[in-house]
Design a protein around this nucleic acid. Structure first.
Lengths: 163, 163
DNA sequence: TGAAATTAGTTTAAACATAAAATATTTATG
DNA sequence: CATAAATATTTTATGTTTAAACTAATTTCA
């Protein structure tokens, strides 16, 4: 642990080629991510008069047939607890989800899709997959798998919440 | 090459393996992007009592020695025009940037770093690179270059603004 | 020239996002 | 049991973000 280059150079001034390559990779991820999110948001707005955050919440609830607690939802989406409150509120007003009390724990709520929400999401998810595929038309199957493998290696060991 | 699954199935109902792979890739990008942004934001807040958007604006201005117009700034950061107004406003209040009128075009403004802003950013950029490198410590140089190459292929042909 | 179109930027309203504080409830512990 | 600690969620304050409306200045072109 006494090689100074194994960790961040606290002394400043010098940065390694590897750290520069990682920074370039991060900036490229950010660029593609912003661009893709922007285009998907626009489509979501025009086609469904809705938003990506609401779509993401519905996606999480679609996978969890019995619904999710608010806290499980915010953890699964990697957004803050208070944030989910507002998004779910809007989805309730739209009739897409319901909040039901939890047996034996009056602090907690379970959020689940309504029948309408479930049917709506099923339709939208297929269209959404098509949008993504179109936006990523420069990516073949091998690229996709390589990219996923690389990003999984980056991601591992930091599965913590940040709330 | 006559496999009907090479493009999005307009008929609905069925989606190809390729489109599913691209969707998985996109979701993985989104996951890493959110996680990384969350950790960088936290560090920016704790270490500098600042935010990522302000850092991003300063980064763009650091690269452009003569400053940038508001519109060039928003295009370069891929965020809306109105958004930049507020961020620059805060940076002006902090003494990091100035707004100067443009000769022969009284509509336009050029935003540039102050001397203090330039010095501050130079220091922060090194530390920031270290943070990214630490967060990406599962990524070697080859991974970084592969990832960049893949994402460049995705990105090409959609260099438009979305404002 | 002068009206129309375009361009640059700000403002506004609504949504999203965080962090921190507050509320209510449950669990743990002396 | 009483109270302290922990948990689940909402509320509040602040900041980021977009889209759309708006103001002002510039350019186009009939």
């Amino acid at each position: 642990m006494d090689d100074p280059n194994l960790s961040r150079p606290e002394t400043g001034e010098e940065t390694s080629d590897l750290s520069k390559a990682r920074l370039r990779a991060w900036l490229q991820i950010l660029r593609v991510s912003r661009q893709t999110e922007g285009e998907l948001r626009e489509k979501m707005r025009v086609e469904y008069d809705s938003t990506l955050p609401r779509f993401d919440v519905m996606a999480a609830l679609y996978r969890a047939k019995d619904g999710l607690r608010m806290s499980a939802l915010s953890k699964s989406l990697m957004v803050s607890n208070g944030n989910v409150t507002g998004i779910v509120e809007r989805l309730v007003n739209e009739g897409m989800v319901t909040r039901v009390a939890v047996e034996n724990d009056r602090r907690a709520l379970i959020v689940k899709l309504t029948d309408e929400g479930r049917a709506d999401f099923a339709r939208r998810a297929l269209v959404h997959e098509g949008w993504v595929s179109d936006l990523f038309d420069g990516m073949n199957a091998e690229d996709a798998n390589d990219l996923i493998a690389i990003l999984r290696r980056v991601q591992s060991r930091k599965g913590q919440t940040h709330d």
